[in-house]
Amino acid sequence: MKIFLLTHERELLRPSNTGALAKNVAPEIVEQIIWARNTPNPSLLDAINHKNTVLLYPVDDADDSPIESFENIILLDATWQEARKMFNKSPYLKCLARAQIKPRQVSQYQLRRNQPEGGLCTAECVVEILISKNHIDIADRLDTAFRLFNSKLQ
């Protein structure tokens, strides 16, 4: 299993970025790729062409396939507004199956405004993916690291 964090370049500069936290806690599973509109990363394209890849993206027309049935998961790591732009400007993402997760709890991450109801930050999404894929120990480590990270920022 691989989780690809497709990260907007501005996200790298934000101290509130939780994608970096997920990458640091689970480097064997989480790979961070900087989004490039015109020159997509070759390993990301390989995963897309593998046909066992899903885009975790909150849309009304998400596929009914459960996320745990996919080997590779792509997650947009950006603000909600940037993520929408990334999706809209990346034709290579539009061919992917899209899935959503059903969060077990309300997001604990309250640092960013304009967060949609039911929306989770990147680290919380990765925790949910790890749990759904039965990587409970790694999910617990990331959840603990996220709670500490979140408490320091508030």
Rank of each mutant, 00 (worst) to 15 (best):
M1D: 09
M1C: 01
L5D: 04
E9T: 11
R10A: 04
E11W: 14
E11Q: 09
E11V: 11
L12N: 01
P15G: 03
S16G: 03
N17D: 11
T18C: 07
L21S: 02
A22H: 03
A26T: 02
P27I: 13
E28Y: 05
E28W: 03
I29K: 12
V30C: 10
V30T: 06
V30F: 13
Q32A: 15
I33V: 15
I34C: 10
I34V: 15
W35P: 01
W35E: 02
R37I: 00
T39I: 09
S43I: 03
L44Q: 05
D46F: 08
A47G: 12
I48P: 13
N49I: 00
H50T: 01
K51H: 10
K51C: 02
T53Q: 08
T53S: 10
T53F: 08
T53N: 07
Y57F: 14
V59K: 13
D60V: 00
D61M: 03
A62E: 05
D64M: 07
D64I: 07
E68F: 15
E68P: 00
E68R: 14
S69M: 11
F70R: 14
E71I: 01
E71Q: 15
I74G: 10
I74L: 09
L75F: 10
A78C: 04
R84L: 04
R84N: 06
K85S: 06
F87W: 13
N88A: 12
S90H: 09
L93M: 04
C95Q: 06
A97P: 07
A99I: 02
Q100P: 00
P103D: 09
P103A: 08
R104S: 05
V106E: 08
S107H: 07
Q108F: 05
L111W: 13
Q115T: 11
G118E: 11
G118N: 11
L120K: 09
C121L: 07
A123T: 00
E124H: 05
E124R: 06
E124F: 06
V127C: 12
I129F: 13
I131S: 03
S132R: 15
N134Y: 14
N134D: 15
H135L: 02
I136G: 05
I136Y: 15
D137K: 11
A139V: 03
D140P: 00
L142M: 03
L142V: 01
A145W: 09
F146A: 03
F149W: 12
N150I: 01
N150L: 01
S151I: 01
S151K: 12
